[in-house]
């Protein structure tokens, strides 16, 4: 058990490190550096930056040092929670990102809950009644769900909202609450707005999970312990729910590990279409404005959040599966 946790933790740390290197690459890949883009943005807003000021800024930011030193310095700042300034906003990055990062995670988790709530019963049904009419319908709808990119679904939802209901179905808050400080009423408002983005985000994941659950459960249903449970006199419903479903649930729990990056990834682009106040629109703006510092930080933080989520799901898996808990596989 300890070995399992240590291994997962090590992997998580390694992943965070890999993400940090990639994020740093994003910051450093484009020609020029932070200062050149700073100069560009300053001159765009009408104020000039002198050569001397630029050099002073470079030195202050350590941009004249070798790349490895810069990386170490940047990581140091990140670890202290000092994410620097967002140029366009003229505010610290942490200020700009804060709520948006939380909301990204809220939406992602809501999407995963939706995915599970739908995929679990449908997957069970399809496995218990394979090749039935409903199974074929679910399979077909699932295929279509897989084939529609998230942003397209979001577009269609927006279009239907506008064209047929004359309402903007995007956003996460009513106008009254958008700028208001957090309160119970605001959270309630958020809850009311969550379903549409959660469904849009969850659809393709649901289609995948249904297929995973169906094939896992079909395998489990063939195993002798199902027949012995039946031979003990349990009702059919209890036999299926208590044994094979319970066993097939384990790989299902472990799907969070890859569902989370997938959903977070999708949330970026869906947020743009549905104009959700997540980090998605912020990231795009930062990238288009070449504010790589902000963009790199967002990529890093998204990655870290995902890794934490995955680690939690690993612990959850250990909790539900005695074979992992007791160190057998």
């Amino acid at each position: 058990m300890v070995a399992y946790v240590v291994r997962r933790l090590l992997l998580a740390v390694l992943t965070v490190w890999a993400i940090s290197v990639l994020s740093f690459m994003i910051i450093h890949l484009p020609p020029g550096d932070y200062v050149t883009s700073y100069i560009a943005s300053m001159s765009a807003s009408g104020s000039a930056v002198s050569e001397g000021e630029a050099n002073a800024l470079r030195e202050q930011l350590g941009l004249d040092k070798p790349i490895t030193v810069q990386y170490a310095k940047w990581m140091g700042l990140m670890l202290q929670g000092n994410f620097g300034m967002a140029m366009e906003w003229g505010r610290p990055v942490s200020d700009v990102i804060g709520d948006r990062l939380t909301l990204t995670m809220v939406i992602s988790v809501a999407a995963i809950i939706f995915t599970w709530a739908l995929a679990l019963p449908i997957g069970i049904y399809s496995a218990v009644y394979p090749y039935s009419f409903a199974d074929y319908v679910f399979t077909f709808v699932g295929f279509i769900g897989l084939a529609i990119p998230g942003f397209l679904l979001a577009l269609v939802v927006m279009y239907v909202g506008f064209a047929y209901f004359g309402a903007n179905v995007g956003g996460l808050f009513s106008p009254d609450f958008a700028e208001a400080p957090w309160s119970l009423a605001k959270i309630w408002d958020l809850t009311k707005h969550l379903p549409i983005p959660a469904v849009v985000l969850g659809v393709s994941g649901t289609a995948q999970l249904i297929r995973i659950m169906r094939s896992n459960l079909l395998d489990e249903l063939r195993k002798p312990y199902v027949m012995t449970a039946r031979a003990r006199g349990l009702s059919e419903y209890r036999v299926i729910m208590r044994y094979p479903v319970r066993v097939a649930l384990n790989p299902f729990v472990s799907t969070i590990g890859y569902l989370l990056p997938y959903v977070v990834s999708g949330s970026i682009i869906v947020s743009l279409v549905l104009s959700l106040p997540t980090v998605g629109p912020l990231l795009l703006k930062a990238l288009i404005a070449q504010d790589m510092f902000l963009a790199g930080t967002i990529v890093l933080l998204l990655g870290v959040m995902t890794v934490i989520g995955t680690f939690i799901s690993d612990l959850l898996l250990m909790w539900v599966d005695p074979r992992i808990r007791l160190g057998r596989q």
Partner: peptide, 29 residues
Amino acid sequence: ANSREIRSVRGGDIGLIFQEPMTSFSPVH
């Protein structure tokens, strides 16, 4: 096949043991 009577027979009147002791038990119970 799923009636109350047959279920009281299974396990009650008639017990069953299988060839595969490994897979005849649920791995998570």
